[in-house]
Nucleic acid binder design. Structure first.
Length: 599
RNA sequence: GCGGAUGUGGUCCAGUGGUAGGACAGUAGCUUCCCAAGCUACCGGCCCGGGUUCAAUUCCCGGCAUCCGCACCA
């Protein structure tokens, strides 16, 4: 199923998500997760945290959502989030003004220019509309910054921005995080939280929004030495949609081919072992949370599509029927190289490297000079310092030059002759314990909201039960907002009400998220739970109260089948079902089943 | 941002220049021993602002929001 209208209607009516602040007319691109949706989202985040932080031995942090301007100057977002558009007066098409300028001139970084300068260039170079050929001269160049700006502190304050990705909060704290990791690679830091993008045109409900929740891992590695534990996911099957497949004139109908992680690496479909590893981890994780993996593929970014920082990137894409059957991006696994840490090192002047120790300290012969400044000073005056530096440079690059009696260096085009004795050239033996390296970053970045949306879309099913059509949400038990619902079979019999209340207390004490419902007919109550994906319903009936020991019936959401089990075994059975140690089929064969109208 | 369509109880819709109705959902009661049953009652609405008019939910203008297409999506 999964018509868009169905998903949106269910989401609103049952409290999964809805447009925020509708009482005041709302604002496009902002959504509130209702009780069911918030619980589902929380479960997605918990499962992600378990897999990408806990199981990978990574640490989670919580950085501010607002950072001062220099952070985003360094990260490149201030420039690259700034699109300049120019609209053709004739045909009305909008074009990236900076791209037009770059295409028509020798300029390579037109993005860095001011809109007014771009407008001037459009005019001077007589650039025309690529679509209709009309002159663009005189058209206004509009600027869109996709970051939300704010000011920090009173008055004009200091400009700040809401983070457009959670990643920067990790990168800027790298100097401390590396200390926490005791300076040893590889290590990873995760963060789950909101990011903000002032989209020009939010669309398609939850799929394109202005505030989104990201779950990101920044895996810091030594690109030369660190290898992922590839063998743990080597046999995981992936559906890869690589660049060559996308470029073929007639790509496969499904738009992917299935290979294992091992094959992807061996056949060099995926260049980086680390990316391959996380593709495998992601695939397993999606299976775990109940995404329909028949509707999951990994698509490699085309070269022109990649972000300013990425050298390779694979998106996880889910086919979402309620979005018109489109493949939508739900995660990106990219290789960011040392881009971010280098940029923040430059921007801040701080140390964003780690010290990489050699296995054995290495002795190196290092040519050095120690010029006698008491001679150079009087001889060269103000140039003496520069001459000394030039000598050091020469020693490093061309030690043979010191074999002559006089060495010659050039400073600002002027030659200086120095007696070799004065330079005090010497080759000394030094011990090096290691080198400072800037780690590379592998970034699995997940869109939590879109994942939630895909789970609902994939989970929404319609079948027939008891002669009636019914809608149910086939969520993985771990994701379901409610673990189990408990009903008295009829609500006009006091002992049943009491017994149901007791069962709920017992389940809650055992750690289950249990709910009770005694309003309306039993069928109606089953349907309510079916719609919000509650995997199991427990019903207390008179027959059960008369049994010795007492029994209740346990109902499976997807089939409606019921087993009558002793009340005392309920917690244990639910735990077994939850932990995957039992399935409902086994219960049905082990216990008495309950006839339903369907059978 | 451009173009088109739309905006009526919680949800899905009908309708009108004289302030509105249905279905479903919800609540209360009756009934009810297994899948949205029935009966009774109740709750609850014309997106916002301006204009035209004696009177606007209806017509006009603007805004906001939603959907579709285009553009954008680092």
């Amino acid at each position: 199923m999964g018509e868009r209208a169905d998903v949106v209607e269910l989401a609103k009516r049952r409290g999964f998500f809805f447009a925020a602040a509708e009482a005041y007319g709302g604002a496009a691109g902002f959504y509130t997760f209702g009780p069911e949706g918030a619980a589902l989202k929380r479960n997605v985040e918990s499962a992600w945290r378990d897999r990408f932080a806990l199981k990978e031995d990574n640490e989670e942090i919580a950085a501010p959502t607002i950072m001062p301007e220099p952070v985003f100057e360094a990260s490149g977002h201030l420039d690259t989030f700034d699109d300049m558009l120019v609209e053709c007066a004739e045909c009305g098409e909008s074009h990236r003004a900076d791209h037009l300028v770059e295409g028509a001139t020798a300029l390579e970084d037109a993005e860095a220019l001011e809109p007014a300068e771009i407008a001037t260039i459009l005019e001077e170079h007589e650039i025309d509309c690529p679509d209709c050929g009309a002159a663009l001269a005189g058209q206004e160049v509009e600027e869109f910054n996709l970051m939300f700006q704010t000011s920090i502190g009173p008055g004009s304050g200091q400009p700040g921005y809401l983070r457009p990705e959670t990643a920067q909060g990790i990168f800027v704290e790298f100097p401390r995080l590396k200390e926490y990791a005791r300076g040893k690679l590889p290590f990873g830091v995760t963060q789950i939280g909101p990011a903000y993008r002032n989209e020009i045109s939010p669309r398609r409900g939850l799929i394109r929004v202005r505030e989104l929740t990201q779950a990101e891992l920044e895996q810091f590695i030594d690109p030369e030495d660190d290898e992922p534990p590839l063998e743990t996911v080597a046999d995981v099957a992936l559906r890869l949609y690589a660049v060559p497949d996308q470029e073929e004139s007639a790509p496969a109908a499904e738009g992917y081919r299935e290979v294992t992680v091992r094959e992807a690496v061996d056949e060099e479909v995926v260049a980086s072992d680390w990316i391959a590893y996380y593709l495998g981890v992601a695939q397993e994780w999606y299976e775990r949370i109940g995404l329909d993996t028949e509707k999951l593929r990994f698509r490699q970014h085309l070269p022109g599509e990649r972000a300013h920082y990425a050298s390779d990137c694979w998106d996880a894409e889910a086919k979402v029927e309620s979005a018109g059957g489109d493949w939508i991006e739900i995660a990106g696994i990219s290789s960011r190289g040392d881009y971010d840490l280098s940029k923040h090192a430059d921007g801040s002047g701080e140390n964003f490297t780690v010290f990489k120790q050699y296995d054995e300290p290495q002795s190196v012969l290092e040519p050095t000079v120690d010029p006698d400044m008491s001679v150079l000073g009087p001889e060269f005056g103000g140039d003496a310092g520069a001459v000394a530096e030039a000598l050091e440079d020469l020693a490093a690059h061309d030690p043979d030059a010191f074999e002559q009696e006089v060495v010659t260096v050039t400073v600002d085009g002027e030659r200086y002759d120095v007696d070799t004795d004065i330079a005090n050239f010497e080759v000394v033996e030094k011990t090096e314990a290691g080198v400072h390296i800037t780690p590379h970053v592998i970034e699995p970045s997940f869109g939590v909201d879109r994942t939630v949306y895909a789970l609902i879309d994939h989970g929404l099913e319609r079948d027939e039960l008891g002669g009636e059509t019914r809608d149910y949400l086939s969520l993985a038990a771990e994701m379901a907002p409610t673990d189990v619902a408990v009903f008295p079979l009829v609500s006009n019999h006091e002992p049943l009400l009491e017994s149901a209340a007791e069962v709920v207390s017992t389940l809650r004490a055992a750690g289950f998220d249990a709910t009770r419902d005694d309003s309306g007919s039993i069928g109606r109550r089953y349907r309510r739970q079916d719609e919000v994906g509650t995997p199991f319903c427990v019903t207390v009936d008179r027959d059960g109260l008369e049994d010795d020991p007492e029994t209740i019936t346990l109902r499976d959401r997807d089939t409606g089948a019921q087993a009558r089990i002793p009340t005392g075994e309920l917690v244990g059975q639910l735990e077994a079902l939850r932990d995957g140690e039992a399935d409902f089929e086994a219960l049905l064969s082990r216990y008495e089943t309950v006839e339903t109208a369907d059978e």
